[in-house]
C-alpha cells in the first residue's frame, strides 16, 4: 500500500510539470478522432499525446496558486476576526462569509466567472473566493483556542514581549492547523479547478487542459476513447494520490 499514493501522484505531476517542454513546436493537424498516432487525435485533429503533455500544468498550477491565495486571504481574515477587541469587527468580518458559504459553490463560481470573463487569473480568483471563507473560519477557531490557552496567559504574566505573545507563539501553534488543513484544501482546490474547467468556466474552449480535453472530446468517446480516458485517468490518479499521501503524512504526524 505504501508506494501506491506516491506513484499515483508522481506520474501525473511529472507529466503536468515537465510535459510542456516535450511538446514539439511544429504540430501538424490531422482529421478529428483519427487513430493514426499513439493516442490518436482529438476533436479538432490535434495529437492527443501532445495535448496530454501540454494540458496538466494549468490544472496543477491553478490549484496550487488558488490554495496559496486562500491562505493569504483567509488566515489574516480569521485571525483578525478572532483577535479584534471590539467584537463588532468579528461579526462584520465573519457574517458575510456565512452568507457566501450558504450559496452553492458552483453557483458562485459560474456567476463570478461569467462576470469576470475567461482567463486563468479569473479561475484562480474564483476558486480562492469559494475556498477562503472556510479557511477564515478554521483559523478564527484556531486563534480563539490559542488566545485562551493557559500557556499564553503564563507568558503574559512573565512579561514576555508583545512580539512573542502575539506573533511567535500563536504563529507556531497555527502551523499545525495549517499542516492538517493544507492537504484537504489542495485536493479541494484541484476538485474545483477541474470541475470548473470541465464546465467551461474561465478557460478558452480549445485550451490544452486535461479537464477541458475531457469535456471537448466526449463527443468522440465511441470513436477515440483515449482522448477522454487518458486525461480523466490522470486527474483521478492525481486526486486519489494526493489524498493518500496527505492522509499518510497526517497520520504519521499524529502518531509522533
Amino acid at each position: 500500500m505504501r508506494g501506491v499514493g506516491a506513484l499515483l501522484v508522481t506520474v501525473p505531476l511529472l507529466l503536468a510539470l515537465a510535459g510542456p517542454w516535450f511538446v514539439p513546436d511544429d504540430r501538424t493537424r490531422g482529421g478529428p478522432f483519427m487513430p493514426n498516432s499513439w493516442l490518436g487525435t482529438d476533436f479538432v485533429g490535434r495529437d492527443v499525446w501532445h495535448q496530454v503533455l501540454a494540458g496538466g500544468r494549468t490544472v496543477v498550477l491553478v490549484a496550487l496558486l488558488a490554495t496559496l491565495l486562500s491562505y493569504l486571504v483567509g488566515v489574516p481574515w480569521g485571525v483578525v476576526a478572532a483577535m479584534s477587541r471590539p467584537r463588532v469587527v468579528d461579526d462584520l468580518l465573519m457574517r458575510p462569509l456565512d452568507l457566501l458559504l450558504a450559496v452553492p459553490s458552483l453557483l458562485v463560481l459560474i456567476l463570478t466567472a461569467t462576470i469576470a470573463g475567461p482567463g486563468l487569473p479569473v479561475l484562480v480568483g474564483v476558486v480562492t473566493l469559494v475556498n477562503f471563507p472556510d479557511v477564515a473560519r478554521i483559523f478564527r477557531g484556531a486563534a480563539l483556542e490559542i488566545a485562551g490557552r493557559p500557556a499564553l496567559e503564563a507568558m503574559r504574566l512573565q512579561g514576555e514581549s508583545w512580539w512573542r505573545t502575539s506573533i511567535v507563539y500563536p504563529g507556531r501553534s497555527m502551523v499545525r492547523t495549517l499542516a492538517a488543513d493544507s492537504g484537504v484544501r489542495l485536493t479541494g482546490a484541484l476538485y474545483l479547478v477541474a470541475s470548473a474547467s470541465f464546465l467551461g468556466v474561465g478557460v478558452p474552449p480549445d485550451a490544452a487542459d486535461w479537464a477541458v480535453m475531457v469535456d471537448r472530446n466526449r463527443v468522440g468517446l465511441f470513436l477515440q476513447p483515449w482522448a477522454v480516458v487518458v486525461p480523466a485517468v490522470l486527474i483521478v490518479a492525481l486526486s486519489v494520490g494526493l489524498n493518500l499521501v496527505f492522509d499518510r503524512a497526517l497520520r504519521a504526524e499524529a502518531r509522533s
Binding site: 484541484l190 479537464a211 475531457v214 477522454v228 480523466a232 486526486s239 486519489v240 494520490g241 489524498n243
Partner: peptide, 24 residues
C-alpha cells in the same frame, strides 16, 4: 484506503472513466 483515496475525486473524471468502461 479506498475512502481516503476517493474522497475528493472530481465527478466528471470518474464519470467519463466509468462511461468509457461500462457504457462504451
Amino acid at each position: 484506503a479506498i475512502t481516503v483515496g476517493l474522497h475528493s475525486i472530481p465527478e466528471f473524471a470518474l464519470a467519463v472513466v466509468l462511461i468509457a468502461l461500462f457504457g462504451v
